[in-house]
Structures are given as structure tokens and as C-alpha cells.
């Protein structure tokens, strides 16, 4: 049997992902995470000396603390199965990638297990970010 007949048959049975549900869920979960982030920002604005520019840092740190507990209790992956990109795009997704790898490789020891495997998933984000920022910053400083 030729490969492309197999491919067409397989294409017919590829289960369609529930796009509408996924998008709605990621909108709701992503939105509520950002709303939570805004509330945390407001809290820091009121009670600590952060201006609107610098309030992002403590907000991100607080969200990552929250992610650590959610990941540790095994709740985060259940939410993510429903939320999809809603829990991955916010910085909690980055935190979850780092923390879940750390927890996972704990049994291989802290130096070789956690240390060497921690950024296996989140490393791509950092590398692509830093490299693209470097290129952009160089271009901008040369032009301006």
C-alpha cells in the first residue's frame, strides 16, 4: 500500500482538537492569572515603595512562589490540561517549567540532578530571549 494512501486515511482519523473550548479556557485562565498579577501589583504599589515601572518584579516573584506551591501539590498540571496556553504564556508557565524539572530530577541528587536538568525546558525561552535582545539592542544602539 502506498504511503500517501496511508497518510490520507490517517488524516481522516486525526481527532480535531476542541479549538473553541481551548481558546475560551486559555482566555479565562490567562486573564485571571493576569488579573491576579494586577491585584498583586496594586498591593505592592500601595504598601511598598515601587513605582508603576518597577512593580513588575515583585509581582513576578510572588507569582512564581504561587507556582511553586501549585506545582508541588500536583495541581498545576491538572489546571494546565484544561487551560492550555492560559497557564503557559504567563510567567507562571516559565516558573512551572523550572520548578517541575527541579522536583522531577531531585532523586538524582541536587548537583547532578536538579542542577543540570533544571533549565532543560525553560532554557529555550532564556536563550531565544537573550539572543534576540542582544541583536535588537546592538542594532538600536548602532542606528540611534
Amino acid at each position: 500500500m502506498k504511503t500517501d494512501t496511508i497518510k490520507t486515511i490517517a488524516k481522516k482519523h486525526d481527532p480535531k482538537r476542541p479549538l473553541a473550548k481551548n481558546c475560551l479556557m486559555s482566555f479565562i485562565f490567562g486573564g485571571s492569572l493576569c488579573a491576579l498579577g494586577q491585584m498583586i501589583s496594586l498591593f505592592y504599589l500601595y504598601f511598598f515603595d515601587f513605582s508603576e515601572e518597577t512593580v513588575g518584579d515583585p509581582t513576578v516573584a510572588t507569582l512564581i512562589i504561587l507556582t511553586m506551591f501549585l506545582t508541588g501539590w500536583g495541581v498545576y498540571d491538572k489546571i494546565a490540561q484544561v487551560a492550555g496556553a492560559g497557564t503557559m504564556v504567563p510567567v507562571t508557565g516559565f516558573g512551572n517549567a523550572v520548578i517541575s524539572s527541579a522536583i522531577e530530577h531531585r532523586n538524582e541528587g541536587f548537583v547532578l540532578g536538579v542542577g543540570s536538568n533544571m533549565f532543560k525546558l525553560a532554557g529555550s525561552v532564556i536563550v531565544s530571549g537573550v539572543f534576540s535582545s542582544f541583536v535588537i539592542a546592538i542594532i538600536k544602539t548602532l542606528l540611534a
Binding site: 481527532p15 498540571d77 517541575s100 524539572s101 522531577e104 530530577h105 525546558l121
Partner: peptide
């Protein structure tokens, strides 16, 4: 992926 990694698995 690690067991706690929040990733959405497709229905297939």
C-alpha cells in the same frame, strides 16, 4: 516531560 509540567496533551 516532567510529571508536574503543565502541558496540554491533545486528544490523540
Amino acid at each position: 516531560f516532567p510529571n508536574e509540567y503543565g502541558q496540554q496533551k491533545p486528544p490523540s
